[in-house]
């Protein structure tokens, strides 16, 4: 129960990565891996983050990221890593 995936999908514009990284930094979150592509002007990013110190404050970070998504007009999801593993690995 220590890692989560943050995904961002929306129209590309300056400041998306900066905004997400800043919010994560405010919560003392370490980014483990980032993958980003732009397909016909749609920005998609997946970020693997370390949650070890955050289990208590999970909901707070999720709310902050959602608020940021609204501000930037992009969709930001944060989900624990296990759901992706469950579906794709035996």
């Amino acid at each position: 129960m220590s890692k989560a995936v943050v995904t961002v999908i929306g129209k590309d514009q300056p400041g998306i990565i900066a905004g997400v990284s800043a919010t994560l930094a405010e919560h003392q979150i370490n980014i483990l891996d980032v993958s980003q592509t732009i397909m016909s002007n749609i920005f998609t990013m997946s970020m693997l983050i370390n949650l070890e110190k955050l289990d208590e404050e999970y909901n707070k970070l999720q709310d902050d990221l959602s608020a940021l998504g609204q501000k930037l007009h992009v969709e930001i999801h944060m989900q624990r890593e296990e759901i992706f593993d469950a579906m794709s690995r035996v």
Binding site: V5, T7, S35, T37, T44, S46, L48, H77, E81, I83, F84, D85, M87, S88
Partner: peptide, 11 residues
């Protein structure tokens, strides 16, 4: 983990 797996689950 591959990005395609993440996208698949989210979709």
């Amino acid at each position: 983990m591959e990005t395609s797996q993440i996208t698949e689950t989210i979709n």
